[in-house]
Design a protein around this nucleic acid. Structure first.
Length: 593
RNA sequence: GGGCGUGUAGCAUAGCUGGAUAAUGCGUUGGCCUCCUAAGCCGAAGAUCCCGGGUUCAAAUCCUGGCGCGCCCGCCA
């Protein structure tokens, strides 16, 4: 609760000086209380014991006695060596409400910072549909994008298109050389194409890719196939425009299909940058020449070149190869050129990467340092497993995001249909669509990225406490209060504009709890953004929604046609914060459900 | 073998820049709709915070040694 801390720090400083503490180490010790009923801020007094030669409880008492009355402080108490300070609910209400109409933007919507952030996420190889494993990157990345925007940063969301690797080469070869009959014969015995996705190129063309993977292993002329693919990949890496165009024709429809899936999740990108650009524009070639001048440059027997990052402290495998024996570049080399290009366009660079890229990212980072470039921030995430084990397209052990979204919507529709039998079908569909996709997203956002994650249908499709629909429902209740006011003829804008209303001496616990949750909202947003941990904000939003529900129970807004101004103002601030917060996580803030 | 990450009630998680009675949801269980949407609210039971050692007034949190799980250790992307 930064709000309270700022208000009382000078008081506390004076009180501590009176007791005999003159250094300012205590400022970092003054932290949010562990339990809400202890207080808002707590100061453990144990470290002062040695310095003052007194017992911690006595010190806490002495400090408490020296703190003068202040409008922000509701209560000061000491327990077992802790000094607990609770904000005055009236002060909280006054601060938060100080004209919600004019200052409402302060809550939930921050001022522009002027900072330009480039966030690269997803960047999946365009060779098949998203499964929930690959989608963790997109969901986390997009949430980070949205939270930065909510925070006030100027964000560009970027997809790096891998348009020249072996995977794309295989796809292009398969489309050119395998007939539909070949593909179906090769994949006989596996799951067929779900008729639902007929015509969606990511689902259709991945079968050519999968068939090619089999054919490359099993067909009699596999050496010739490998040579042909190798020739194309090689040509692409030397910037052969004809081959690159053929690759693009192969992957672009697949990429479009993948983006359709992401769009359904509310995920979109501002820019797409193709890997091949850095080969064709000469950046990669110049970079490789530059590396030759480095003192840590080395050459292998066949002419391949590397940087010896061991000399810079890298453990394990220390040779970082940037050029093959045949003179072509490697993925990592292009990635470095890409990063140098990105740095020209932003103040901060964030990459969202799977944990399998940690070593690679480390090598790229060290090389960028060698080039006197800044190192990007990286958000790593663990892979999503299925209860049966690792997700694998080859083994048919996958859950496609398209299927998950269909199932989520269907289940949400069943819930809405049962709970709201009077709703029209199109209204049910709209709610089910919003609830389904939000639940799927939230299920992934709410856990910390580095944690291993096992996908379970029953959890992805849970619509109760701890889920996106729980938050959506609280928001809907707040919206319904507005509708109620309108139907009662309440002048809402007028009510919100009222300032300096008399606040009741005692407030119901639901009100106090909500005020405290509101007071902490922007602190959590800042932390989630700065530490790249969206799940902190997700958990806060659950807490905020929960607090709103208790407030809803305790504080009626309209009774017998009479509106309670304070309650309405608090409800409206909460509604806006919930709405902007939901948008920050990609949860759809619908108004009915 | 080496590197990185992770291990918290039956299950899934939060807390990890050290601080009090370890928080939340699911599940189990007891209450609450003549009142702005019960996808809700209030209560109960349920924890050797993986194990051992260390640092400290204080360890789930930091250090160290084990064990389990995941990922990486390509002139692949």
């Amino acid at each position: 609760m930064q709000m309270l801390k700022t208000a009382i720090e000078p008081l506390l400083e004076a009180a501590l000086e009176e007791v005999g503490i003159n250094n300012s180490h205590w400022k970092s010790m003054l932290a949010p209380s562990r339990e809400l009923d202890q207080g808002d801020l707590s100061l453990p007094c144990f470290p002062f014991a040695k310095q003052l030669g007194q017992a911690p409880p006595a010190i806490a008492e002495a400090i408490a006695a020296s703190i003068p009355a202040h409008e922000a402080i509701g209560e000061v108490n000491t327990v077992a060596g802790y000094l607990n300070i609770k904000a005055s609910p009236i002060w909280l209400a006054r601060t938060i409400l100080s004209s919600p109409q004019t200052h409402g933007h302060l809550f939930g919507e921050c001022q522009p910072t002027g900072r330009k952030i480039l966030i690269e996420h997803t960047s999946a190889n365009p060779n098949g549909p998203f499964h929930v494993g690959r989608a963790r990157n997109a969901i986390l990345g997009d949430s980070l994008v949205r939270l930065h925007r909510l925070f006030g940063n100027e964000v560009r969301a970027e997809y790096y298109v891998d348009d020249m690797g072996k995977q794309v080469g295989v796809l292009a070869w398969a489309l050119a050389n395998l007939s539909e009959e070949d593909v179906e014969a090769t994949l006989k015995g596996r799951d067929g194409l779900n008729p639902k996705w007929k015509g969606k190129a990511d689902h259709e063309r991945v079968r050519w890719y999968q068939a090619a993977q089999v054919v490359r292993q099993e067909r009699a002329d596999k050496e010739a196939i490998e040579q042909e693919i190798g020739r194309m990949v090689h040509a692409s890496e030397h910037g052969d425009q004809g081959v690159l165009d053929a690759f693009a024709a192969a992957y672009q429809p697949v990429l479009d299909g993948m983006l359709t899936t992401l769009a359904r999740l509310g995920i979109s990108f501002d820019t797409f940058t193709k890997e091949s650009m850095f080969v064709t524009n000469g950046d990669v070639g110049r970079l490789m020449e530059l590396f030759r001048t480095f003192e840590i440059h080395g050459t292998a027997d066949n002419g391949a070149e590397f940087l010896d990052l061991g000399a810079r402290g890298l453990k394990g495998k220390t040779e970082f190869f940037f050029r093959r024996g045949d003179g072509s570049s490697l993925y990592a080399t292009r990635d470095i050129a890409y990063h140098m290009w990105k740095w020209q366009q932003c103040d901060d660079l964030i990459n969202v990467l799977g944990e399998d890229h940690k070593l690679q990212a480390k090598q790229v980072g060290m090389t960028l340092t060698e080039l006197e470039q800044k190192v990007p921030e990286v958000m790593f995430y663990s892979f999503i497993k299925l209860p049966e084990g690792k997700m694998s397209t080859r083994k048919g052990n996958v859950v496609f995001m398209d299927d998950l979204l269909e199932e989520a919507q269907a289940q949400a529709a069943a819930v809405v249909g049962a709970l709201r039998p009077d709703y029209e079908q199109n209204q049910v569909d709209e709610i089910a669509d919003a609830a389904g996709k939000s639940a799927v997203r939230f299920n992934i956002i709410k856990v910390s990225p580095e944690k291993g994650f096992t996908f379970r249908w029953e959890e992805a499709l849970a619509f109760e406490g701890g889920s996106a629909p729980f938050i959506m429902y609280s928001h809907v209740r707040a919206c319904s209060i507005v509708r109620r006011c309108q139907s009662e003829g309440v002048d809402i804008d007028g009510e919100l504009a009222k300032a300096n209303i008399e606040l009741p001496e005692s407030m119901p616990s639901g009100m106090v709890g909500l005020l405290r949750a509101l007071a902490v909202h922007n602190d959590v947003l800042a932390k989630a953004v700065n530490d790249r941990r969206p799940h902190l904000f997700a958990n806060h939003l659950l807490h905020l929604s929960n607090c709103f529900n208790s407030f809803y129970r305790d504080c009626m807004i309209v009774i017998d046609g009479e509106v309670n101004t304070i309650n309405l103002q608090v409800s409206e601030v909460a509604r806006r914060m919930m709405r902007t917060g939901m948008e920050g996580l990609g949860i759809v803030p619908i108004e009915h459900m």
